[in-house]
Each structure stands twice: as C-alpha cells, then as structure tokens.
Amino acid sequence: NDSQVKIRGFRIELGEIEVALSQYPIISQTVVSVEEEGDNKQLVAYLILEKEKSLTIDELRAYLKKQLPEYMIPSSYVVMESFPLTPNGKVDRKALSASEHNRLKVSDNYIAPRSPIEEMLIGIWCNILQIEKIGVNDNFFELGGHSLLAIKAILQIQRCFDIELSVRNIFEFPTIASLSEKVLNSNNRVSKQATSIVKADRSKSLPLSFAQQRLWFLAQFEPNSSLYNTYRTILLRGTINIIALEKNINEIIKRHESLRTRFSTFLDQPVQIIEDDLYITLETIDLTHLSEMESRQKSVELITQSATKTFDLSRLPLIRVVLVLLSDESAVLLLSIHHIVSDGWSMNIFLEEMSCFYQSFIFGKPSSLKPLSIQYLDYALWQRDRLSGE
C-alpha cells in the first residue's frame, strides 16, 4: 500500500493525515508525503490555501493535535498555488519533493536571540533542523524535531557547553528561551566558560559565526531584502545636543568591531573584514515647521523608509541612524542595523551604552564604560571551535 509508510517504528496512513488537513477551514487541497534526509524520514504536508488566506504552523498543529496522534503530525508544511501533475492527471509526488516553495512560518512573533547562550542554541537547532530562522520561543518539535534529532541536539549542546543534559530536557524545555535557562543553571559551568573565550588573531582569515553565515547566504539569494534589518525608534524628550549625539553614536561604533565589519569572500567562503575606522554622520530631518498631525504622518513614513532600506553587506556602514526633530523639545531617533552585526540582545546594549556616552559628552566627563576585553569575532571563533569535529 503506497499510502502506508513506516516512520520511527510507527505505521502511518498518509491518507488519514490528508483527510484531517482537508477538513481545516481554509485548506482547499493537500498532499502528504515522506521525505528523507540521510537516515531521517519526515512527514511533509503540501497545501493549497483558499485565496488571500494565511495561517501559521502553530495554528495548524493546534488543530491537528485534536485530530491525530503526535507521530502522525507532519514536521513541515509547504504552501503552493497548485500541485504538479503527471501526464495521467495525478499529483506528481517526485516533483513535489524536489520543489522549493513557501514553508509556513512557525509564528508571527519572531524574537531574536538575546544572549550568547540563546544564539549558540539557535545555531545548533538551525544546523540540525535545517531551518534558516528560529526565534527564542519557537518549539523544537513544532519546527520538525523528533526524538532522534533531539538526541543529536543534546549531544551537540553537551559538547558545546561541557555540561550534562538528558534527552528528556529538550522535551521539558522545548524552546530556546526555556532551554537556555536550563543550560545556564547547569552547575554554573556555562558562566565559567565565558572566561575561556580569548582574543583571536586578527591577521588571519576571519570566518563568520554560524548565525552570521546563515544570514550571509540568505543575503546572496535576496540581496534587496530588508527582512533581516533590526530597528528601533527611540523617542527623545528635552533639548537635543546633536553634536554630542553624533559623537556618542560613533564612540559606540569605535567600541564594537561588529559595527565596523563588512563581509566578503575568500576561497569561496564568506569572511569578516573589520575596518579600523568608521565615522558616520548623523542624518537630521527637521519637521518642526509642520503641524502636529503632519509631523506624525511624516515621521511614520520616515520610520518605514528607514526600517525597510536595504544594506549591502560588502560595504560599510551596516548601521543607519536618523534623527527626526518633531519640536524644540522632542525628537525621534531611528536606528536600523543589519541583523548580521546586531540582534535584539546587542541592540539593547547599544541603547544602554548610548545613554551612558551621551551623558558623558554632555557633562564633559570620561565614560564609565570599561574597554571590551573580547569582541563578537572572538565569540564567533570560540563557537566554531566548540562545535567543530562532530
């Protein structure tokens, strides 16, 4: 029976899964197949949705859990406009397996890694699950993970952090956010490992971290995409010292190598190139002559432009800062940085340091921030060393 398959010891009727999926309100047609990657077999559901409809994996899995046992729930979901057909008018399953289409998103609430541990864990998961983008609240099993992949993940996590974990832990803590807490609290070994990161030799070819490498490859396929821009809008109150603010931003750029980093290739591999100096001019847009309503509308337009303007990873800067003056006592700072050199965690550090440096420049006092002993590059090389030699 071609519709009956065996995966991880379970006999599964593909037709039963297709019936359950076809009963979901906005799915008009569906085909479920088995795809293999090495020794790993997984169920993939191909879907045709009703026009102008959309859904997420979270929604679909919540529905399927009420209809099917866990082992019959597909790992991946691909949305298509139509299915390829054979000359006989049947669905061409081989063409389906070879196709590249829009995979459903896990959720609309992507949250980037906020700490080195979360970034490390995401790097491991992305590598094992073959997924390009994972948020800290995404569920390992809803991303397509299963017990065999969980074993592989735990082995890599144990080697990376030099801690003891069991496969049960990934079932108990199935998100990056929860698992990172478990890793951090594992006999405090992880915090001790931070001291093992040493300053790397800058004279050699400088590879990317795993997270950077994924983003670099994505940028090669979609060079004009703003999807991986990280941005913040900061409302500033009081009199703004524009000169001090510009100095402030450039002091942070001077402090962090990643903000002076561009990307190239060496022997067909992506590499980091860190420039010694980079000074950016703070672009200032004055809207004080407009009415309050006009100013609000224009500022929203500028926020959208700043957030969606693309970066060229081979050229500096990969940071863009715009100051929009709303009145004599208020302004909005638009901060946009490519995700390859910044994430939600480092963006918070940027804002904290900006506040510290600004106060120092205003009052003419030296900064209380100590020089950084290591940079992101050092972490990237440490990460590669920890995860090499699987």
Rank of each mutant, 00 (worst) to 15 (best):
Leu149Cys: 08
Ile253Met: 05
Ile124His: 00
Ile57Arg: 02
Leu85Trp: 03
Leu64Asp: 05
Arg260Leu: 09
Glu164Leu: 12
Thr265Leu: 01
Leu267Gly: 05
Pro174Phe: 11
Asn109Phe: 11
Glu52Ala: 15
Leu218Glu: 04
Gly89Phe: 05
Cys356Asn: 02
Arg11Phe: 14
Gly89Cys: 10
Gly123His: 01
Leu179Glu: 00
Leu369Phe: 06
Asn1Gly: 03
Ser178Gln: 14
Asp268Asn: 13
Asn187Tyr: 11
Pro69Thr: 04
Ile273Ser: 04
Thr195Cys: 06
Gly123Cys: 03
Lys66Ser: 05
Met293Trp: 09
Ser368Thr: 13
Ser3Tyr: 15
Phe141Asn: 09
Lys370Pro: 00
Tyr110Ala: 11
Val91Lys: 12
Arg168Ile: 08
Ser368His: 01
Lys365Ala: 06
Ser82Tyr: 07
Asn248Ile: 08
Val34Asp: 11
Ala194Met: 08
Met72Tyr: 01
Leu259Trp: 02
Asp276Ser: 04
Thr86Ala: 15
Glu294Cys: 06
Lys41Asn: 14
Tyr46Ile: 02
Ser191Cys: 11
Ser355Pro: 01
Ser388Ile: 12
Asp162Lys: 06
Ser367Gly: 01
Gly89Lys: 00
Ile243Gln: 13
Ile374Asn: 07
Trp216Glu: 00
Val183Tyr: 03
Ser360Phe: 01
Asn88His: 11
Ser342Gly: 05
Gly238Met: 04
Lys152Gly: 10
Thr195Asn: 12
Leu148Thr: 03
Gln297Asn: 13
Leu215Asp: 00
Lys41Ala: 10
Ile253Ser: 06
Phe10Val: 10
Leu318Met: 12
Ile7Phe: 02
Val300Ser: 05
Glu52Thr: 11
Gly144Cys: 00
Thr230Pro: 03
Leu165Cys: 09
Arg214Thr: 06
Gly9Trp: 05
Lys247Ala: 02
Ala95Ile: 02
Gly344Val: 15
Asn229Leu: 09
Asn40Asp: 13
Glu164Arg: 07
Ile240Tyr: 01
Thr308Arg: 14
Gly145Trp: 02
Phe217Ala: 15
Ala200Val: 09
Tyr24Pro: 10
Pro74Tyr: 06
Val341Pro: 09
Val322Ser: 07
Val32Phe: 07
Tyr77Asn: 10
Glu246His: 02
Ile242Glu: 07
Ile154Phe: 00
Leu235Asn: 05
Gln212Leu: 02
Leu21Gly: 14
Leu333Trp: 11
Val321Asp: 11
Gly344Glu: 14
Leu335Val: 09
Arg189Val: 04
Trp125Val: 10
Trp345Asp: 13
Gly15Arg: 05
Ser327Trp: 06
Leu49Tyr: 13
Leu104Gly: 00
Ile117Asp: 07
Asp328Thr: 01
Leu236Ala: 01
Thr265Phe: 03
Lys182Glu: 04
Ile252Ala: 04
Glu100His: 12
Ser22Ile: 12
Ser3Gly: 02
Val341Thr: 10
Thr308Leu: 10
Asn348Ser: 12
Asn109Asp: 14
Leu121Thr: 00
Leu267Pro: 03
Phe171Asn: 04
Gly389Thr: 10
Leu47Glu: 15
Ala331Val: 10
Ile252Phe: 01
Ala62Thr: 00
Ser115Glu: 08
Pro207Arg: 01
Val5Thr: 08
Leu21His: 09
Tyr71Phe: 15
Asp378Asn: 05
Tyr24Phe: 14
Asp343Ser: 06
Glu81Pro: 01
Leu325His: 09
Glu35Ala: 04
Tyr231Gln: 13
Arg61Glu: 10
Thr281Arg: 15
Phe140Met: 10
Asn127Asp: 15
Lys182His: 08
Leu85Asp: 11
Val322Thr: 14
Phe221Pro: 05
Val341Gly: 09
